[in-house]
């Protein structure tokens, strides 16, 4: 009797399993899309990958682009590029191809591959004002990243809406003029200034505390050198104080070089953010900041 009951139970279990509703590919795809819309990118990635695994190439066109978007949103730029490439290869519509190219360019820029981004921008077919404006924006960003500031200025001037915002060209020109003035903080020049007089380079880049610090430290060691030389001997001074002086004198001008680099980096960051602020303020429907 017990055996019969076990067999009956097993039979019912098998029948039940066979009737269990499995999640279909369209359901998983809908779930992935819902997660993407909610901004749950990691969950969306898992769901899209599941669709790709079970659906194969037939579902690629529906999955590659949103999957790439998820990777881009989570900062996985290389994976994003891969799937944008696949999506691009499967798309025949010119407008969609342009949009995919722009998103791929964003992924390349975020991955630090400015050169490849520049190459991909050449493939954009900017045949409408919408795409021309968008292309100009990405060209501006790419040229800025590649430190080709003349080209970046031209591209940003093209990207902004100077009809609705007549003050914008002046803002862009002013920001690029500020960028051009950063050349005076040439790190090598600043380093030579500190070689000539400890602290001078730091003073030039506006780091007054470090300037005074370097001057006092090396000046103090120099005074100590003189004191030991006068009260003991030149040999004593050379062996006991000179290595310390040399260490902080060299460290001082190397620090001046780094400070000049940081100054340029900080100013460039500010200028770039202000350029983006200017672009953001022009988005239709968004109030000017």
């Amino acid at each position: 009797m017990r055996l019969i009951l076990i067999c009956l139970g097993l039979l019912l279990a098998l029948i039940g399993t066979g009737r269990l509703p499995a999640q279909t590919l369209p359901q998983t795809l809908a779930f992935a899309e819902a997660q993407l819309a909610l901004g749950q990118y990691e969950t969306a990635i898992k769901a899209y990958r599941r669709v790709l695994y079970f659906g194969g190439d037939s579902v690629g066109s529906a999955v590659f682009a949103p999957l790439a978007d998820c990777y881009l949103a989570t900062g996985q730029a290389r994976q994003a590029q891969r799937y944008f490439n696949l999506a691009y290869a499967q798309t025949r519509d010119d407008s969609l191809r342009n949009e995919l190219l722009f998103r791929k360019v964003a992924a390349l820029l975020l991955a630090g591959q400015d050169g490849l981004a520049e190459v991909d921008l050449l493939s954009v077919q900017a045949n409408t004002p919408y795409f021309r404006q968008k292309l100009a924006f990405y060209e501006g960003v790419t040229a800025f990243q590649r430190e080709d500031f003349d080209r970046a200025e031209r591209a940003f001037l093209q990207a902004i809406d100077s009809v609705a915002f007549p003050g914008s060209p002046q803002v862009v020109r002013r920001l690029f003029a500020e960028q051009a003035r950063l050349r005076r903080f040439n790190p090598r020049k600043v380093r030579w200034m500190s070689v000539f007089l400890p602290g001078l380079g730091q003073l030039y880049v506006g780091e007054y505390r470090y300037a005074a610090n370097s001057l006092l430290l090396t000046g103090g060691l120099m005074a100590l050198f003189g004191y030991v030389f006068v009260n003991l001997s030149l040999i004593d001074a050379l062996f006991s104080v000179m290595p310390w002086f040399q260490r902080y004198y060299i460290g001082g001008y190397q620090h001046a070089y780094r400070l000049a680099e940081e100054k340029i980096q900080g100013e460039r960051h500010r200028i770039f953010q202000q350029l983006l602020d200017e672009m953001t303020s022009q988005i239709p429907g968004k109030a000017t900041d």
């Binding site: 409408t128 004002p129 919408y130 021309r132 404006q133 809406d161 009809v163 022009q282 988005i283 968004k286």
Partner: peptide, 9 residues
């Protein structure tokens, strides 16, 4: 010009 704007926020 509204029609020609390409970038989203």
């Amino acid at each position: 010009s509204l029609l020609a704007w390409g970038q989203s926020q």
